[in-house]
């Protein structure tokens, strides 16, 4: 079985600035990969490249064994972008309509929400604990509730791969912890492969099966335990900072 994602020799630039240099790694089915790194380290550039939202100068990306330019089965990929200006707050869609977009986007008339689709939407909202919000307008919800709706939209197609770009940036610590617990459950119970981009290397150490540390190039990839003893990370952070992150767990 081919890896879910395979990246080799990826180079991306914005004008004269290198965003990513020679990044290579693979993500296997069932992995929970946390992509961490400082601001401007190329995390979001990597996500956009993986999803085909921006093109890079060199390198190859394959999704489920298919080169990215030829990949068409986007129903197998769920995506949750950063929670900043995700949609126009006056957008008059109900929670059910937004989640239904995950099933309908890219499908033409006469495709409408079927009875099966409705039950799938209801089931997803139930699993996310927001079934009671289904008739509410998305713009009327709190940040945490909106994030759950957007996660439901990403999950309603039962994707094999879920990519989340700093999904907790606008959440309070309590909601953030509940959100991480939800992701762990999705990864363990459904076997969904997760890629989570975050600043929060200390918190995700508890849940992710692998950590990828990026600073315009790949500094480290491995388990959290390996991260704590990695000489590359000691060289990059200094021993004290590395020790402090690892001692939090």
């Amino acid at each position: 079985m081919p890896p879910v994602i395979e990246v080799s020799g990826l180079y991306c630039r914005y004008g004269m600035t290198h965003a990513l240099s020679d990044v290579s790694f693979a993500v296997e089915a069932g992995d929970y990969l946390a992509v961490v790194g400082p601001n401007g380290s190329g995390k979001s550039t990597l996500v956009k490249a993986l999803l085909g939202l921006s093109s890079c100068d060199e390198g190859e990306i394959t999704l489920f064994g298919t080169p990215l330019p030829e990949f068409t089965d986007w129903r197998t990929v769920g995506y949750l972008p950063q929670n900043l200006n995700l949609f126009n707050p006056i957008f008059p869609a109900t929670v059910s309509e937004v989640v239904g977009l995950g099933l309908l986007a890219g499908k033409r008339f006469p495709k409408r929400i079927s009875r099966d689709d409705k039950s799938r939407i209801a089931e997803t909202l139930e699993q996310m604990g927001i079934a009671d919000l289904r008739h509410r307008l998305i713009g009327d919800l709190s940040g945490g509730q909106q994030q759950r709706v957007m996660l439901s939209r990403a999950l309603v197609n039962q994707p094999k791969l879920l990519i989340l770009d700093e999904p907790t940036a606008a959440l309070d610590p309590e909601t953030r912890d509940r959100f991480y617990a939800l992701l762990t459950e999705i990864n363990r119970n459904r076997g969904t492969t997760l890629i989570l981009v975050t600043h929060d290397s200390a918190t995700v150490g508890n849940c992710a099966s692998k950590l990828l540390y990026l600073d315009k190039k790949l500094i480290f990839i491995g388990t959290f335990q390996e991260f704590c003893v990695s000489p590359e990370m000691t060289g990059h952070f200094g021993g004290a900072a590395q020790h402090q992150i690892c001692r939090l767990h």
Binding site: L53, Y79, A105, G106
Partner: peptide, 8 residues
């Protein structure tokens, strides 16, 4: 962006 990832 979401629409593009959904194949639109």
């Amino acid at each position: 962006e979401l629409a593009r990832v959904s194949g639109v």
